[in-house]
Simulated scan of single mutants.
Amino acid sequence: MADLSKREVRRREIAAAAQAVAARDGAEAATLRAIAAEAGMAANAVLYYYGSLAEITAAAVQASSDRFLARLAEAADPAMSPTVRLAAVISAGTTAGLDDDASRILYEYWTHSLRDLEHRRIQAELTRTQQATYERIIADGMQAGEFFPVLQPAKIARTLVAQEDGLVMDVLAGTASSEDVLDLVASLASALLGLDRDTLLDHIASLTFSHPGQ
């Protein structure tokens, strides 16, 4: 943060406080007063840096989305074969936001996108980026002769993202394990792309074992 202004540093601290409250106590508990207390500030002082609670929560969600997408981009290493890259992105897409509460915060505030234009923009950009990541991998896999899609690549990519979104919610709710989710998403991807399911799962298991923190 050495190159950031003091104001920007403070804004990030407030957004981080909002993330902490939402992850610990839920979005409903992330009031202006609660966020200010978490940041060690008075509520009116927080409003010096942000114009409203809505602006703070949008910043918190944006930061969580950025963290999630950074991990997804890191997983999509173009040096890997398309099949291994697919395994890496499936693993990242279902587990990357779980260890630091990024996914929990995104889900806590998901319903805000039904009413708030800024939250809707963040959610739409998150989905577009996830889908584009899969589309690039599918295109490379087709070119390499590794994938044989049964639907248009864009439809497959969107379906995989939607599957991940729903299943990660089950993990957060405690009704499914990460292992279950990885198996289901890999099974779907294999069927849609003409891949051997066990091979894809082996790649996922290898990547998960190599990066146990993810």
Rank of each mutant, 00 (worst) to 15 (best):
D140C: 08
P78I: 01
L106M: 05
L126A: 14
Q62E: 14
A60Q: 05
Q62I: 09
D165V: 14
A157N: 09
T94A: 04
D101W: 03
G145P: 06
Y48E: 14
V150E: 11
G97D: 04
I56H: 02
E146M: 10
A157W: 01
F68H: 07
S65F: 08
R115K: 07
L114K: 08
V150K: 08
L69I: 08
M169T: 14
V46C: 14
S64D: 08
V168I: 11
T111N: 08
G145S: 09
T95I: 02
I90K: 04
L117V: 13
I90L: 11
P78N: 06
A79Q: 10
A96D: 00
G51V: 12
A162W: 15
A54V: 07
I156G: 09
E164V: 13
R104M: 10
Q130K: 15
D165R: 12
D101H: 06
S113L: 07
Q123P: 07
Q152R: 00
I122N: 00
G51D: 15
F68K: 03
I156D: 07
I90G: 02
F147G: 05
L151R: 11
I90Y: 03
A92F: 01
I56R: 02
Q123Y: 13
P78R: 05
D99G: 06
H112Y: 13
I105E: 04
A59P: 06
A173G: 11
L114S: 11
V89N: 03
L167K: 09
I90F: 02
R71I: 02
D99N: 11
S91P: 03
F147A: 09
A63P: 03
S103H: 04
V89Q: 00
Q152F: 10
A58S: 13
Y134D: 03
L72A: 06
L172Q: 04
D170L: 15
P82G: 05
T127L: 15
A154F: 13
D99R: 13
V61M: 12
V161R: 12
L98K: 00
A75Q: 02
Q143M: 11
V168L: 03
T129P: 06
A73L: 10
T83L: 12
Y48H: 11
V171H: 03
G141E: 06
S91L: 10
I156T: 13
T95S: 01
I122C: 02
E55K: 12
D116E: 10
W110F: 13
L172A: 04
S113Y: 05
D165I: 15
A139L: 05
A154C: 12
E164M: 15
Q152P: 13
T129A: 10
R85A: 06
P149D: 13
T94C: 04
I122K: 00
S113C: 14
A173H: 12
E108M: 03
E125I: 07
A173W: 10
L172G: 03
E74D: 09
L117I: 13
D170V: 12
L69Q: 03
R115C: 14
K155I: 15
I137W: 05
Y107I: 02
